[in-house]
Design a protein around this nucleic acid. Sequence first.
DNA 1: TGATCCAAAATCGTATACAATATCGTGCAC
DNA 2: GTGCACGATATTGTATACGATTTTGGATCA
Lengths: 229, 229
Amino acid sequence: MAPKEKATDTASTKVAEALAEAIHEHRIAPGTKLNEDEVGEVFGVSRTVIRAALQQLAHQRLVELKRNRGAFVARPTVKEAREVFEARALLEPTMTRHAAERMTDADVAILQSHIDAEHAALAAGQTGKALQLSGQFHVEVARIADQSTIEEIIAQLVARSSLIIALYWQRRAALCESNAHHALIRALANKDGALAEELMKNHLLDLLTSLDLREQTSAPQSLSEALKA
Amino acid sequence: MAPKEKATDTASTKVAEALAEAIHEHRIAPGTKLNEDEVGEVFGVSRTVIRAALQQLAHQRLVELKRNRGAFVARPTVKEAREVFEARALLEPTMTRHAAERMTDADVAILQSHIDAEHAALAAGQTGKALQLSGQFHVEVARIADQSTIEEIIAQLVARSSLIIALYWQRRAALCESNAHHALIRALANKDGALAEELMKNHLLDLLTSLDLREQTSAPQSLSEALKA
DNA sequence: TGATCCAAAATCGTATACAATATCGTGCAC
DNA sequence: GTGCACGATATTGTATACGATTTTGGATCA
């Protein structure tokens, strides 16, 4: 339960991870300004490390940096949402096929543990946690495919997807995901690359269509941002 | 000719761009340590902005950050080289097809000007510059496809490719590239999506096979690095 | 001679201080 | 009463100072 200390990581990374988790769990609303002094006080560190953390998050597109204005939690547009899933649609099915060809028993166990943890989190009402674990499943597939470069790209896209889902999710069908993952894991365990690829393709499409991507879904968070947009 | 000042960019970005250019043109050898004080003196700024710049470059995988040890120019492995081109192979052909469908006369002109500039640089012996322009061609294709998210990913992959090419290029066939781009531009101008897609796929394969990716091509830059690897 | 340990130097990580810029409120002119 | 200008305030951008960690060199001892 205690956060595992990665001694090799710098302080800014830990802050970035904490902020990312908060953003993914939608505890910080998109568009929120992240004041450096304020955040620094919360984490008990100086602005130096906060700035480094914010820069990391900006590279992941989880926050937006505006010169002399500050950092704001990203508010992915509908277009961006589509683009992220378009990118995933181009990368992940092929990764899944490759993963099926290299699948080991250990890999099956790892993926299964992800699903289990996801179910546990869901049962405990930890929606954010479940979402993160669900995303991690996709990253693991790329890892199994032994494509670390694409794995990183997918990790970033998954992180952005998490924010997108938090924003545009039309509430319903919370566990259909796990079912999709369950079918996927079976195809992967059977080394059925073609089926796994197809399942992943459909899974991503399902995810996309489960979003409400009509233009300007809800009223903008703040009036000021709305008028500037 | 003068570097255009982007007033909206922070100082660290300018330093990062300058360093990136130097790395791409292979004026700084892979594996070279980038001492913060030293680099800071060169650019006449403090370590604060240098650190920010190095962090940006680390995110692009152009430099590697080692805790308490410093920043080193990245030395992509053979595996990483293959992975980068695998990622590009998954993304760019589809982008090319989409670009063909949205191509305007202005876009044709832009792409043509890229090729012309590339030829000019090549004629002037500016190999590094030509390489960069050649890469920019690929980024432009994604822009024309109106996929800014994938455009960013490709931009990053192209940047890494530039370093990879500088490392693993087996000297020969310098201008076959431009020919490939020329054929591509014609297919794009004719809005022949299928042909453009195929040409891009082959072009990327050509690029990959033009590299010498046998294990451990040349002797490592430094003994110390060699022994640690 | 070789290895080991320790101290000194170098370098990175973080905090603080100062400068530049943007934001916001107030007052004045019309 | 409205619009604009200007100064006060807040916030970011950059530089510098200090502490922590690593590296390096030499001295000591087997």
